Amino acid sequence: MTRVLLVDDDLELSAMLKEYLAQEGFEATTVADGEAGVAEALSGNYAIAVLDVMMPRLNGVDALRRIRQESRMPVLMLTARGDDVDRIVGLELGADDYVPKPCSPRELVARLRAILRRTATPEPTTDADEFTVGPLRLWPARREAQWAGEALTLTSTEFTLLEVLVAAAGHVVSKNTLSEKALGRPLARFDRSIDVHVSSLRHKLAPRDDGRSWIQTVRGQGYQFVRE
Score class of each variant (00 low, 15 high):
V133Y: 05
L58Y: 07
G44H: 05
D97L: 08
E70P: 06
K101T: 14
P124M: 07
E130C: 08
F26K: 09
L11E: 14
G34E: 03
V61A: 05
R68V: 04
D127E: 15
K101A: 10
I88Y: 13
R87C: 11
G34S: 04
A80W: 08
V99Q: 09
L93M: 05
E123I: 14
L112K: 05
A128S: 12
D9S: 07
A110K: 07
C103D: 05
T30Q: 08
V85F: 11
L51E: 00
L116M: 15
V53F: 05
V38F: 03
F131R: 06
R106P: 09
L17Q: 04
S104K: 12
G25M: 08
N59A: 02
R81A: 09
D52Q: 02
L76A: 00
A110P: 09
C103S: 14
D83L: 04
L108Y: 03
K18G: 03
T29H: 10
C103Y: 13
D9P: 03
V75N: 00
L17H: 09
A39D: 13
A120N: 10
T30C: 13
L64C: 00
G25E: 14
E92D: 15
M77Y: 06
D33Y: 05
G25A: 06
L42W: 11
A15N: 12
A120D: 15
M73F: 05
A110I: 12
C103M: 15
N45C: 11
R113A: 03
R117D: 15
V31Q: 02
G25I: 13
P102I: 10
A128R: 10
E27H: 14
E19C: 11
M54N: 12
Y20E: 13
P100C: 07
T119N: 11
R118S: 05
R72W: 06
